[in-house]
Design a protein around this nucleic acid. Structure first.
Length: 450
DNA sequence: AGCACA
């Protein structure tokens, strides 16, 4: 002690919340440092493998007193600090913060930067990106763009934790060619010519993306009132003006859906699922007209209706061309429907407990995607001739192959998103407000409740 | 065993 005191005397150390550690085992890892240091306080940063021998490190504590605690403890302890049996020498660093080896893309934030490798910008739609990332939590905004690195997207989550979970699970993975969603709309995620589609994900320095328009390049799922950029929508799904220059119908917050080739029963629940992908559905009414089935779907605003209309128009609810949807704007602006019947719903009436349970969580098309490629793919025409939805909500197809709870993306080679019906939330009101397609929540994260 | 720079 007196000798070491003399050494200390030669190298006068002013206390710092950064400690310098030396004589560490070669290529000591962060976890080993943390193990050694965390009893003394909160570690905010580390830097390992410093020096020619890779046997030095820096540890930064949140508080100076924590560093002092550690330094003085080992200075007077008969048991030296050790890592893997090697004595570690600890002093105050002559620096006051750790600058670590993390690049800018490694600094956690709530916005992710995804580079989608091996695709052209037009190959992966913003809806697919939204679907994939929504498995981890509510996606606030998405912006896509092309850079030298390729096709990229910024995905904004509520918080760092959600973004980190998504990054951990998705970085280096591929977007699967098709999901197992029974909803044809979300079944084929990639065009045929795309052979692989790797995701490289880092953190963006952005905290809040500025989205000017809802378009095929950018979406703000928190703001249904954001105007749709007509030029950006153009060529995305359906131009609003026909080739014959026909005057487009006046927009409305209520959509009229005609269901063509309705080989299977289309229930209010099914429509709610499909249309909720674009925003809050307020009311639905199903009726017969001219021997066909039609439905009115009411959104709170025109913008949401416009986005939904453009995205869904001409798509089929089921694979095989079944239940093809044709959409137009209704002249209605506020439907007068029964709160709960087999042909209508008013979701704006709170606490309609009769149907609430079936509405919560189990109604997202994105949830159908799963199983690491191993789960059964659901086709309406393989259900032993039985129409899929006749028995009501409990036979929602996503639940027909529900398995035990699996963490999202647990499978080795493919996507594995939790199954519908596994999100607990029987007490959640049906307010999957502004959820995009596949607005599934990660386990432990309740659906967004605006 | 004695302070990094990406």
């Amino acid at each position: 002690m007196s000798t070491s005191g003399q050494h200390q005397f030669r190298y006068t150390q002013t206390p710092s919340k950064v400690l310098h550690l030396r004589n560490l085992p070669w290529e000591c890892i962060e976890e080993e440092l943390v193990e050694l240091c965390k009893p003394f306080g909160k570690i905010v940063n580390t830097r390992c493998n410093v020096g020619a021998n890779h046997n030095q490190a820096f540890v930064e504590f949140a508080d100076l007193n924590q560093a002092i605690n550690m330094a003085t403890y080992f200075a007077s302890s008969s048991e030296p600090a050790q890592v893997r049996g090697k004595t570690v020498y600890i002093q105050y660093s002559n620096r006051h913060e750790v600058v670590n080896n993390k690049g800018p893309g490694d600094v956690p934030g709530n916005v992710l930067l995804a580079t989608i490798e091996g695709v052209e910008a037009g190959d992966v739609s913003i809806d697919v990106i939204h679907l994939v990332f929504s498995a981890f939590g509510f996606v606030h905004k998405v912006a896509t763009f092309e850079k030298a690195a390729g096709f990229q997207a910024l995905i904004q989550f509520s918080d760092v934790e959600t973004a980190s979970a998504a990054r951990e699970s998705l970085d280096g993975r591929s977007i699967p060619r098709q999901s197992l969603s029974p909803f044809y709309l979300w079944k084929y995620l990639l065009p045929d010519h795309v052979s692989s589609c790797n995701l490289r994900i880092s953190y963006s320095a952005h905290r809040d993306l500025s989205i000017k328009f809802q378009s095929h390049r950018s979406r703000d799922y928190t703001n249904p009132y954001l105007p749709v950029n007509p030029s950006a929508i153009e060529g995305f799904v359906q131009p609003a003006v026909g080739p014959d220059g026909k005057i487009k119908e006046p927009e409305s917050n209520v959509l009229l859906a005609s269901i063509e080739n309705m080989q299977y029963v289309v229930t209010v629940d099914v429509l709610h699922t499909v249309f909720s992908a674009f925003g809050t559905v307020q009311k639905i009414a199903i009726f017969e007209k001219n021997g066909g089935t039609q439905a009115l779907i009411q959104y709170p605003d025109i913008t949401t209706a416009a986005v939904a209309k453009d995205a869904i128009e001409g798509h089929c609810i089921y694979d095989g061309g079944y239940c093809k949807l044709h959409l137009s704007y209704s002249r209605h602006t506020d439907l007068n429907v029964k709160a709960f019947s087999d042909k209508s719903r008013d979701y704006t009436i709170p606490n309609s407990t009769v149907w609430q349970n079936s509405q919560t969580a189990s109604m997202f098309p994105g949830n159908g995607f799963s199983g690491g490629g191993a789960g059964p793919t659901w086709y309406p025409n393989t259900q032993a001739g039985r129409p899929p939805f006749v028995s009501g909500p409990s036979t929602f197809p996503g639940q027909t192959y529900s398995q035990s709870s699996v963490p999202a993306y647990a499978a080795a080679a493919d996507f594995s998103v939790m199954q519908p019906g596994q999100i607990s939330g029987a007490s959640q009101p049906p307010r999957q407000h502004n959820m995009g397609p596949g607005g599934a929540s990660h386990p432990g994260q309740p659906p967004y409740n605006g």
